[in-house]
Amino acid sequence: MKKLINNPDDVVKEAMAGMALAHPDLITVDLENQIIVRKNAPIRDKVGIISGGGSGHEPMHGGYVGYGMLDAACPGAVFTSPVPDQMLAATHAVNGGKGVLHIVKNYTGDVMNFEMSAELADAEGIQIASVITNDDVAVQDSLYTAGRRGVGVTVLLEKIVGGYAEAGASLDQVVALARKVNDHGRSMGMALTSCTVPAAGKPTFELGENEMEIGIGIHGEPGRRRTKLTNADDITETLITPILEDLQLKNGESVLALVNGMGGTPLIELYIVYNALQRILKGKAISIARSLVGNYITALDMAGCSITLVRLDDELLKYWDAPVHTPALRWGR
């Protein structure tokens, strides 16, 4: 294992300390409670939005804390859910009196711990709502989930819903929009290599020189099948076909497209995938109205990619385009 770390047990706290020093104008870091909070939180009369999950998926979620996106993030240990006390501390930190939304990826530990923290907050009189993302079309159940996994749509949802909350929407309105984004989005990923968890010191699984894993999760869990390595055009076709089938997109519709790197894939390769994606969708009379290409929801150092599509309408486009300023995303401000 070759990594830029010190003690594997200190990886998360040292990374959080580095984030605080790198972005003092955007975030504050509470190392005791292990949460990342928007600089001026809580904001009076604004719905607070928090999310969280195991570390190792950076920039998600801490990189999305700031104006127009999340108000706080709760990082757990690598690939391990944060605990309810973290989530409750984050809820307190962002509660501006208009309620707090928890955005939860559909992983068993995340769902259970966010439910516990919501019950604790509700008992204190804080208005809480939760939305679970479950956009992965690769498998119905996995090692970490009951039902579909929450993956790339989570990032896009946080941006769109964050823009809506910034505009003054109520908690009920924010929840409705979040559910709409989740319903309109689907994802699928693949791996060329495994990832190496610092505490383990060895790859999570083995792939042969001429093998790839189709439908992996963001923790390196297995997907639909292991198959022979092929070229970028074929890989893109393999990933996008079940997404299109599930979304049932029609001629003339437009989408928000995310071509996401899993942490160890060069950007040049991701643009090759995006080129193939654009060509495939154009052939089906589906237009890409907005896009992101890069590492946005990763699995440590895994080589591979995922594709996410969200069916767009005027409302989703409006709040996607709304200003955002976080460590990982910035436009319009």
Rank of each mutant, 00 (worst) to 15 (best):
V181L: 07
R290E: 14
L192Y: 15
Y164K: 14
P8S: 05
M16A: 12
V100A: 06
F205L: 13
E166K: 04
G263I: 09
D110A: 03
C305Q: 14
F79L: 12
A41G: 10
D313A: 13
S142P: 00
Q127D: 15
R330Q: 15
G304P: 04
I216F: 09
V153P: 02
K202W: 03
Y271K: 08
S170I: 00
L312I: 05
S187Q: 02
N295L: 04
I5C: 05
A199L: 09
G150E: 12
L249V: 04
L316K: 10
Q278N: 03
I268F: 14
I126H: 11
S142N: 11
K3W: 08
A123W: 11
Q248R: 06
T154M: 12
L4F: 05
R226S: 02
L300P: 07
M87R: 05
F114A: 06
E58W: 08
L143R: 08
T133Q: 03
R44F: 02
T133H: 01
L120K: 04
V151R: 01
Y164D: 03
K180P: 00
A169W: 08
G304M: 09
A276G: 11
G152D: 15
L171G: 12
L239M: 15
E315H: 02
I126S: 13
K282A: 14
I50Q: 13
V12L: 10
L281P: 05
A22E: 05
S254N: 15
L156Y: 09
L292R: 12
L171E: 13
V161L: 10
L267N: 04
E221Q: 04
V100G: 09
I5N: 03
G99Q: 02
S142D: 05
A257V: 01
G162P: 01
A73N: 09
L171P: 01
A77K: 10
G62W: 05
R148A: 05
F79D: 14
P24R: 01
P323V: 09
Y144I: 01
S170V: 00
I49H: 11
S306F: 11
L281F: 14
L292K: 06
A77Q: 14
